[in-house]
Design a protein around this nucleic acid. Structure first.
Length: 944
RNA sequence: GCUCGAAUGGUGGAAUGGUAGACACGAGGGACUUAAAAUCCCUUGACCUUUAUCGGUUGUGCGGGUUCGAGUCCCGCUUCGAGCACCA
């Protein structure tokens, strides 16, 4: 029988589906292993060959683990909410649900052809009520919680309310937006609305007026990680800063735990580093400065407390509340003008144009240590959102302060021995301190930093500030709270209604709150989000039903929230839902959660480093505090598969003609390179007839050939439609089969590396699979496995392979194991090996890589079970042992001759044998041998 | 600017400090064939030498170092990629 991959793959895919081969159930008697891919957003373009790379890699691992006896969970689902479907809906009126389902079907169809071992009975879709019910539930729990810094844990908000009733904010140590102070009496005197507003300062899901990234092009706000270089990640529309009341998640409360957790997980150093940067922990000092001729004081944050004696001015962020208070009458007009001007600048302009600008506030601050007064300036190089929005400026040791001081002619006072600040500031945290004031110039006590190193000086100043109650030691994080509202239709609705402007959670039994139908997907004419179009969008507290909004009476029927949740909401806990996808009592049952625990191997792109991978770690930690997720870190091992880039081809058109010149001759003409569809190019040779048929305007094209061929140029670019370099997996499968595709994707290179797709090399893998098939099948098509005992050489070749493949899979080094298969099959076919004992093992080894052909051959070997349930072969080193070992005898790094020694020869025996060998007789090139070193790897090195 | 990672033939890429370039593509040559496809065999880093074999020199971005021995370890650069970036 010939290798007919189409029939074989079709047959087995059908059989797997019918028999539920990959359905998995919890089984306490077996060890679990949880493999997960980042679930895809089903885009309209379908899959290209880059998408399945990670799925194939994880599928190989999942199948391998299964053969090793693990109970493997390998689920798949869809991140179904997202902007493209909604944009499409706005343009065409097509409901996003319809588009999404269509795309999902297409994805499923494509995925099924590749032969994955997914358990589809556990599929989740984030846009289905039975799924997003638990997204809404988690949000409500966050609303009902605050973060206790002492316990390092989320707590029910009721505990905090009880505390306020008893003793107000006294001795409170909790995560909060701003530090508030009130007594129990004050708390009790507040109105309901005031209490509600105050609690927002502490809740983990809270509403706040914040500066948000407003994207007019998309009509919504965006999270920080959704904004890249001042434009929206999706669509590339400009983003501006705007103050809006929004739902937020207090991710910052978990900053330290998110940082600490990184040390406990097996992720790549680069992605951990990215997260560390994003969290941006910095240890420093907060210091209070009094304002001259006033009782007013304000706080600044610095990491360089040691430079307190070099402070020559202060700077406020233009958006800071302090600006209003500290601007004097005389300066008001100028300051207002400046603040207005700054506000108009977009994020983008700020980044591209870093001119030094600023304005004097008119006030002076008093240095708490020296009582010296220094001017307070306002400039946009200080950010309102970080620290306190105010800084002490030390131009000698901070390049930004330096630039500002030079521009406005302010004093620059160096504090480190030997540093030259005439051209630039000295920012390094090293050197010996000088220029401390004399003790009698200090306000109280004495702090002399002279002679200390920077590090010592920082510590000494911190201690001084603390001891003299001038401020406190403070750790700041760059990580901001996540803005959680989107003014969109296609997302999870908030299970929230409003009573007199006070948000209330829908009762848990009313979940899920389903996304309503709307007449339009655009914002309303009054600027409300799309849900403003929904008629049936009010909550009746008396009946617990969703009713028409005309019935709103603000007594029992209240308006519902019009915002929806952002994309990361649904993807933050989906790995938990896969464990128990049909549970309608809880997100995941305790028993199931306790069995699967966490994802053992997570695969996905590194582009989610500061988005999904932070949010879901945060989300999981919160659930963990609630007692839901038993393990604090959800993904114990993470592999980031590289992007598959496109390999574009070019043709060169001679200017103003319809004539195309081959690559090697193009320099002789004035040409324009044009992208040409890679699917009509083979080995960079253009299929001229296909090219003429490709576009009507090329029908009459003429060509200047070299050697009778048209050679195309090429370049590596992103795989995209507009570059005509998209390669579709369906097409590859049609031509070579899924097994070849799987092998080739793994063969391309290390899984973590980005690399261009080049269909040219695929023949090698296809040839290999045919060769493998031919070990079992004669040329004439007959099955030809013999029951003879295998030879020593055959077993050696086989066991070398078992060892290599097992190690490689464990190390995710699939490309080298594909090579190992090729070598082994080559050797075996040269030995004409068709022994059952060998082939039986070979099939089991290759099954994770090429499951279809493996099943087919496994069946023809006479097994009744599937090969995916067979045992992983055991390596036996006995077969690799040799009688004699050939040593290379070398000096000066060159092999001079070889000698054979029996296995187990001692170092001394070898040395003596080499010394007395007839070729040396103790001398080489007339010089006596000084030293003989026996190197493990069959090499003996001689030193003269 | 700070942090992390990388650099090996025409290409993708192999090498626990131990014979660099496995494996594959591409290229060249050959066998089979009316021809094509398919299959199989040989050559393939560069340079020198030779009719050919044999042989030699050189070679992993650059410059040093450690070592009997360095693509691999250490120090100093260069280039490329990624992340963060007026974060005080």
């Amino acid at each position: 029988m010939d290798y007919n991959f189409r029939d074989i793959e079709c047959k087995w895919q059908k059989r797997w589906a019918e028999n539920g081969t990959y359905t998995v159930i919890e089984d306490e008697s077996r060890k679990k292993f949880y493999v997960l891919n980042m679930f895809p957003y089903p885009s309209g373009a379908g899959l290209h060959v880059g998408h399945p790379l990670g799925y194939i890699a994880s599928d190989i691992y999942a199948r391998y683990k299964r053969q090793c006896g693990y109970n493997v969970l390998n689920p798949m689902g869809y991140d179904a909410y997202g902007l493209p479907a909604e944009q499409y809906a706005i343009q065409t009126g097509q409901h996003p649900a319809v588009t999404t389902v269509g795309n999902i079907d297409r994805y499923r169809n494509q995925l099924d052809k590749i032969g994955f071992s997914f358990d589809w009975s556990r599929e989740v879709r984030t846009c289905e009520p039975s799924y997003y019910r638990w997204t809404q539930w988690a949000f409500q729990k966050m609303f009902g919680s605050y973060y206790d810094n002492r316990l390092r844990k989320a707590q029910p908000i009721e505990n905090l309310i009880a505390k306020f009733e008893e003793s107000g904010t006294e001795g409170l140590d909790v995560a909060q937006s701003e530090e508030l102070e009130f007594t129990a009496e004050q708390w009790k005197s507040f109105s309901l609305k005031e209490q509600s507003d105050l609690l927002m300062n502490y809740r983990i899901a809270f509403q706040a007026e914040t500066m948000v990234n407003w994207c007019p092009g998309l009509g919504t706000v965006l999270a920080n990680d959704e904004v890249v270089d001042g434009v929206s990640e999706r669509g590339g529309f400009p983003v501006e800063q705007k103050k809006m009341r929004q739902w937020c998640l207090r991710v910052s409360a978990y900053a330290q735990r998110l940082l600490d957790g990184l040390d406990t997980i097996d992720w790549s150093e680069s992605i951990k580093e990215t997260q560390r940067n994003w969290i941006g922990r910095s240890e420093g000092t907060e210091m209070r400065f009094h304002v001259k001729d006033s009782d007013f004081q304000f706080t600044i944050f610095t990491t360089r407390a040691d430079t307190i004696f070099g402070v020559t001015f202060m700077v406020l962020a233009p958006e800071s509340e302090l600006v209003r208070t500290l601007t004097t009458k005389e300066q008001r007009e100028e300051v207002d003008r400046y603040v207005q001007k700054v506000r108009k600048r977009t994020e983008r302009e700020r980044i591209s144009d870093r001119k030094v600008t600023g304005v004097f506030s008119g006030s002076y601050a008093i240095n708490p240590l020296t009582e010296e007064s220094v001017p307070i300036w306002i400039s946009d190089y200080v950010l309102a959102g970080y620290g306190t929005g105010a800084i002490m400026a030390v131009p000698a040791h901070d390049s930004r302060d330096y630039a500002f001081a030079k521009h406005f002619g302010l004093e620059i006072r160096p504090l480190i021995e030997g540093c030259d600040v005439s051209q630039e500031s000295f920012d390094a945290k090293e050197g010996i301190m000088i220029n401390s004031p004399r003790p009698d110039q200090l306000r109280d006590g004495c702090l002399v930093l002279n002679g200390l190193t920077v590090k010592e000086a920082i510590a000494a100043t911190k201690k001084y500030v603390k001891d003299h109650n001038l401020g406190r030691i403070k750790v700041n994080y760059r990580l901001r709270d996540a803005i959680f509202s989107r003014q969109r239709y296609w997302g999870e609705p908030f299970p929230v209604y409003y009573d007199n402007g006070i948000p209330h959670m829908l009762p848990e039994e009313c979940l899920p709150l389903e996304l309503p139908e709307v007449s339009e997907f655009k914002p309303t004419s009054t600027g409300e989000p799309p849900l403003g179009h929904a008629r049936k969008w009010a909550f009746d507290t008396a009946t617990g039903k969703i009713v028409d909004k005309e019935l709103i009476d603000n007594k029992t029927v209240f308006p519902l929230e019009l915002n929806t949740m952002p994309g990361f909401a649904g993807s933050s806990a989906y790995y938990l839902r896969y464990m128990d996808p049909h549970n309608d009592k809880s997100l995941v049952s305790a028993a199931t959660d306790n069995y699967w625990k966490c994802v053992d191997l997570y695969l996905g792109g590194s582009e989610h480093a500061t988005g999904h991978l932070i949010y879901s770690r945060f989300w999981n930690k919160f659930l963990h505090d609630l007692g839901v997720s038993v393990v604090e870190e959800p993904f114990s091992k993470l592999i980031n598969q590289g992007m598959i880039q496109g390999r574009s081809n070019f043709v060169y058109r001679i200017k103003d003609t319809n004539k195309f010149v081959s690559l090697g001759l193009k320099d002789q003409y004035d040409t324009t390179p044009l992208h040409v569809d890679v699917n009509i190019v083979s080995n960079d040779i253009l299929d001229i007839d296909a090219f003429k048929a490709w576009r009507p305007e090329y029908q009459t094209a003429e060509f200047i050939l070299e050697d009778g061929k048209y050679i195309c140029g090429w370049a590596v670019e992103k795989m995209s439609k507009s570059m005509y370099n998209v390669v579709n997996p369906d097409m590859i499968i049609e031509r070579y089969g899924a097994d070849t595709l799987r092998m080739y994707e793994m063969f391309l290179g290390p899984i973590e590396q980005s690399k261009p797709w080049d269909t040219n090399g695929i023949d090698g893998c296809h040839r290999f699979i045919r060769k493998f098939w031919n070990l079992f099948n004669n040329r004439d098509g007959s099955f030809c496995v013999s029951d003879d005992a295998p030879t020593k050489e055959e077993l050696k070749s086989l066991h070398k392979l078992i060892k290599k493949v097992t190690e490689d899979i464990e190390n995710f080094s699939y490309n080298t194991s594909v090579s190992a298969f090729m070598i082994c099959v080559n050797e075996l076919s040269q030995m004409k090996c068709n022994k059952r004992q060998v082939l039986d093992i070979l099939v089991r080894l290759i099954a994770p890589f090429t499951p279809h052909i493996a099943e087919e051959l496994w069946e023809s070997l006479g097994h009744n079970s599937t090969v995916c349930d067979s045992a992983w072969p055991v390596f036996n080193s006995e077969y690799l042992k040799e009688d004699n070992i050939t040593y290379s005898i070398s000096f000066n790094g060159k092999t001079r001759f070889t000698m054979d020694f029996p296995v187990g020869a001692t170092q001394q025996q070898i040395q003596e044998a080499v010394l007395s060998n007839e070729k040396t007789q103790g001398y080489i090139a007339g010089k006596p041998i000084r030293k003989i070193i026996v190197v493990t790897n069959k090499i003996v090195n001689i030193v003269l």
